[in-house]
Design a protein around this nucleic acid. Structure first.
Length: 110
DNA sequence: CCACTGACTACTT
DNA sequence: CAAGTAGCCAGTG
């Protein structure tokens, strides 16, 4: 179908459990294109709020929020903290603990 | 089809 | 750890 990559990304984002996060690269990889991390970000800022996605659970590979807008940045940070995610240095997340690890393909099935 | 853009990533200084 | 460089892919005009 058209935009199957996008569809997959959206589906994956929707399934991220609370207290867990996913990096753009990981989402892209799960969607089938490990190099399309940039598209993931685009999808989020483009259709994120429209599709009611937990965009705040998607961060970059450094365990940080990539938003440049201070307001959105703080909003995402607050949302993550309210779900139990702790920021190691005040603005970086420990991916070893909070990165969502897919245990089976069933996780992504509808 | 071509050019530009982007909430990225990995590598090198 | 910070800054610069290059590679990647999909969407849009």
């Amino acid at each position: 179908m058209l935009k199957d990559f996008t569809e997959r990304v959206l589906k994956i984002i929707k399934k991220i459990p609370e207290g867990k996060v996913l990096t753009y690269g990981t989402v892209a990889a799960l969607a089938g294109n490990n190099r399309a991390a940039r598209q993931v970000s685009w999808i989020l800022h483009s259709s994120g709020e429209k599709h009611q996605l937990p965009w705040h659970r998607v961060i970059n590979a450094q365990g940080k929020i990539s938003l440049g807008n201070p307001e959105d940045y703080e909003r995402q940070k607050a949302l993550l903290q309210s779900e139990g995610v702790r920021f190691s240095k005040g603005e970086s997340i420990d991916l070893d603990e909070y990165l969502w690890i897919i245990t089976s393909e069933a996780e992504l099935a509808d």
